[in-house]
Design a protein around this nucleic acid. Structure first.
Lengths: 254, 254
DNA sequence: CAGTGGTCTAGACCACGAC
DNA sequence: TCGTGGTCTAGACCACTGA
């Protein structure tokens, strides 16, 4: 059945009213909603092109344009002869701060275990509220994680997010996966983009103790905010890393 | 005129031999070559769709697919009712290390002048050779630049690249634009992607002196290698920044 | 107004993957 | 062999831009 637009009068073009969105956008958004709501899970096959043609009553080119935009936005991958599939998150060049780190380490065969340090509800500071697009003082959840490589602590990270997200996060297994990946994979909250700011500081006494490091040594501080496909912040985190044990890598396109 | 593929027998589909590339890819690559060779300069309008249809003897959808891929790769932007235009480089979220910095500063109304410290030809070290995909010991050009903000030095950067690129770079005006942008804008060498690695160190005596900084203070070290559209390295650079005066920002998609 | 890109259709042949 | 996506065509109406 067609969706909210008149069919062609004779053969050929449809009547495009000023109001509704283009057909391909309606198809795209319908599929996107299925993915973001969890009705289609990572790895699932999308309905075939012919199925979408029938369901929405549109032509093949329209369906293909819809899928093409989902590919560009990174939600869908297509394999010739098999179909289109929902991508598995955390496969990109880099996502959160620790994705690159932990995945890269895993590829090198290094294990980087993690330990939950704390999980609390607090009133958002002004900085956190600004990052999460909330009013200062709003109750948010905060989680601190310490990460080890070969029994040496090398990363301490704090994440702020809405209380329900934090509660679900705290229940999840943070020993194997980093926080950003856990949010996507376990909680099913996919992010469209991540704002990253990297800076350098020297370790103070507290940080040095946490990381079994020397006071005055270099610390790489990575601040990230992940944003969902509606432009709303999902989570904000600040990660302090022993600079002798890691760097931050990313490949930029364009 | 059609390009290297037989036309349809009757009405309808063309005969696709296994050999040649798809038509849209041929159109795409022809236009891309015009852009990368400088025949089409940044800001120029591409031939209209109808012109490309006629020139290549293909259908409009084929032309549109070609242009669509050029949009995705960031070489072309399209404006409804006007045409498609070659993008101006250095407009992305982030490119080289200093693009973000200097552009962000300029937006805030801060001037960040630059000064050429040195320009030499040297034999590539193993690390530089690896980044530039050359044999160790190959002669390369190297350029060092110091950058000031309000008369305070805050960034010292070294770039390695093929000798001819370095020579042209040294002749260009590096006081206003950073090296990565100069390579794209002045030299016309567009990069498809940039590998970035960010780390933290503490200032040694030499670096502290150059940056009017304290020994032992935090330095943000940004290492980048830009790659062209054929996958060949264009230039490699290492930039040391006063951590109290800048951070590294980028927005990741996916 | 003419020229540009934006959207859309019906129909065709092809290559690939799984059975 | 069949279903999947990949490529391609001709032709249509629309919205936007600028003269």
């Amino acid at each position: 059945m067609p969706i909210s637009q008149a069919k062609p009068k004779s053969a050929g073009a449809p009547i495009r009213l000023a109001g509704p969105a283009p057909l391909f956008a309606q198809v795209r958004d319908a599929v996107r909603t299925d993915i973001l709501s969890g009705a289609l899970r990572p790895g699932d096959r999308l309905p075939s092109e012919s199925a979408l043609i029938e369901r929405f009553g549109v032509s093949r080119i329209t369906v293909r344009q819809a899928i093409s935009e989902l590919q560009t936005s990174g939600l869908v991958q297509t394999v010739n002869g098999k179909g289109s599939f929902v991508t598995r998150p955390g496969r990109g060049e880099a996502h959160g701060p620790l994705v690159g780190v932990l995945e890269a380490m895993r590829r090198r065969g290094i294990t980087a275990r993690g330990k939950l340090l704390s999980h609390r509800h607090i009133k958002a500071t002004e900085a956190v509220a600004r990052e999460l697009d909330l009013a200062a003082g709003t109750l948010v959840g905060t989680i601190a994680v310490l990460r080890y490589r070969d029994e040496v602590p090398f990363v301490v990270g704090t994440t702020w997010c809405p209380v329900d997200t934090a509660d679900r996060l705290a229940k999840a297994d943070l020993t194997e996966r980093d926080v950003a990946t856990t949010i996507e994979v376990e909680l099913g909250l996919r992010h469209a983009r991540t704002r990253v700011s990297v800076s350098a500081v020297v370790a103070d006494a507290k940080l040095a103790k946490q990381l079994a490091y020397e006071e005055g040594a270099a610390i790489l501080r990575i601040s990230t905010t992940s944003i969902d496909y509606d432009g709303r912040p999902i989570a904000h985190s600040i990660t302090d890393c022993r600079a002798d044990m890691m760097d931050y890598r990313v490949t930029l396109r364009g």
